[in-house]
Amino acid sequence: MIEFNNVGLVYPNGTEGLKNINATIKDGEFVVIVGLSGAGKSTFIRSINRLVTPTSGSLLVDSEDIINYHSGDLRKLRTKIGMIFQNYNLVKRSNVLKNVLAGRLGHTGTLRSIFSLFKKEDIGLAYESLKRVNIDEKIYNRADELSGGQQQRVSIARVLTQKPKYILADEPVASLDPPTSHQVMTYLKKINKEDNITTIVNLHFIDMAMEYADRIIGMRAGEIVFDGPVSEVSEKTFEEIYGRSIREDDLRGGADES
C-alpha cells in the first residue's frame, strides 16, 4: 500500500512540483494519473521510488515512511518497485538478455554482477519474462536493432525480472504509434491482473486512461484535482482536470486496430 500524507515538493530552483498531496493506493490497483505536461504527474510517480525527494509531508510504502531513506534502505525500496520509462531507457549497445538481467541488479551482489555471474534462476527468470511479452526470439539481438514497441516490451520484461511489488510507468506509450500503444498497455494490464502487481501509469491520452484504468487521479499544477473510479469519470471531469475543452490530440485513438 502507498500512502501520500500532505506531501509537498519544492525543487531547488523554487518551482513547486507537488502541493499538499493526499492519496492512498491499495495493493493490486491499476491507477492512471492524467494531466497536462508539467502538472506534476512525473514528480508524483518519481517520489514513490525516490528518484525525486519530497520536501514535506510523509510518504508511506508498505507503512514505512520512505522520505528519509538513505543508500541501503533506498536500494531495498527500489528493488521492490519497477519502473518503465517513455524512452525505454535500454542500453542500446547491449543485447536484450543483458538489458533484462539488469532488472536483477538490486538482488545481485556487486562483485557477482561485475563478473556477470547471474544465478541460473535469474537467467531463467529473464527468459521467462521475455516469453511473457512475446519477445523471446530477440534474446541475443542488440537493443538498438529493435523497434520502439519491441524495446518497450523488453523494458517491461526487465521490470518483470525484477519481481516487483509495484510498477511505475512514466508516459510508457508517448513515443509509440496507436496500435503499439494499445499492445503495451494490454501487457501492463495483464501483468497487473495475473501477478497482482500494483501499477501506476502516467498518461495524457484520455481514451487510453478510460480503457485501462481501474481508478483515475487527475492532476493540475502539482495538485490532485480529481480522484475516483473510472465509472465516475465523464468528459466534464477531464475538462476540469485540463482546465480547457478536450481536443483531438488528447486522444490516442486506434483502439479497434489492435
Partner: peptide, 12 residues
C-alpha cells in the same frame, strides 16, 4: 524456489 527453463545458448 520456482524453476524456469533456461534460454537457448547464443549461436555464434
Amino acid at each position: 524456489m520456482e524453476t524456469y527453463s533456461l534460454p537457448p545458448k547464443p549461436k555464434n
